[in-house]
């Protein structure tokens, strides 16, 4: 019988610990597929964040390191500077990357550090049980914004792709989503490009993946995907925010 669908080689056989309906599994798979497609499993070194994906080091077959909260881009910088021929990526959530780790993110970007960042934006702190994230939407109810995010006191969400694309240095920044088949397929291509850029020595590539958190949003997985369509994507428009490949050809 022909095998038509199988687990990517770059994923271990360890079962994911993620909640039912959590897109982390899909995003992990997309990262692993990109690594497989590019044949870089043996050269890849991944940096896991603090957050729901903290145990990502158990799921990828490549060498892995676990970073302190928000510090993944700095850790990745150290690794890449030590081993420039290896392929170094971080996998980070919104609290990790856009709150506690904002300085590390911005400075890795402005150095055009030749690394790949997979940034998962689900507008909430999942691991700690659903607190307000830097990317939580105005009015969004969370454990620490029980009356809805009040922009007067809690400020506005941070649009990471837009913010980083205001810098001169970064090579490639794109925002994608994984809420339907079409978007998932496109996200896979973007992630692969972000890795390929690094292989070609082009520099900093960040893919912001609009994700969902059914558990902490208090929605069914299906409703959560709908919420992504109706609330998240209008606030966080998908698309390419920076691509120096294209700029060069213009």
């Amino acid at each position: 019988m022909a095998v038509v669908f199988e687990k990517p080689k770059s994923l271990t056989s360890k079962e994911f610990h993620y909640c039912p309906g959590c897109p982390h599994g899909i995003i992990h798979r997309l990262v692993a597929e990109a690594i497989d497609n590019l044949g870089i499993e043996g050269k890849a070194i991944g940096v896991a964040p603090v957050g729901c994906a903290v145990m990502a080091y158990d799921y990828f077959t490549c060498d892995m390191i676990e970073a302190a909260h928000g510090r993944a881009p700095a850790v990745a910088t150290g690794i890449k500077r030590s081993l420039p021929d290896n392929i170094v990526f971080t996998y980070q959530g919104d609290g990790d990357l856009a709150s506690i780790g904002m300085a590390e993110t911005v400075h890795a970007a402005t150095r055009n550090e030749n690394i790949t960042i997979i940034f998962v934006n689900n507008a909430i702190y999942g691991m700690t049980g659903g607190q307000m994230a830097p990317t939580s939407l105005p009015g969004q109810v969370t454990q620490t914004s029980p009356y809805g995010r009040d922009v007067k006191t809690a400020g506005y969400p941070i649009k990471v792709a837009e913010l980083l694309s205001s810098l001169d240095a970064p090579y490639y920044i794109e925002r994608v989503a994984v809420n339907n088949v079409k978007n998932v397929k496109h996200a896979g291509k973007a992630i692969e490009k972000a890795f390929r850029n690094q292989m070609e020595g082009k520099g900093f590539s960040l893919i912001e993946v609009i994700s969902a958190c059914p558990t902490n949003w208090g929605l069914t997985p299906q409703k959560a995907l709908q919420w992504v369509d109706e609330k998240m994507i209008p606030y966080y428009p998908l698309g390419v925010y920076r691509d120096k490949d294209k700029e060069a050809s213009v």
Binding site: A68, R71, A74, V75, T77, I79, R81, S82, A103, E104
Partner: peptide, 22 residues
């Protein structure tokens, strides 16, 4: 060799962590 002026002490020590891991 590599000299890098980090954006903070926190980043510097985490870059150290990264290299040490290699």
């Amino acid at each position: 060799g590599v000299f890098l002026q980090a954006e903070s002490e926190i980043s510097a020590i985490n870059m150290v962590y990264g290299v040490a891991a290699t």
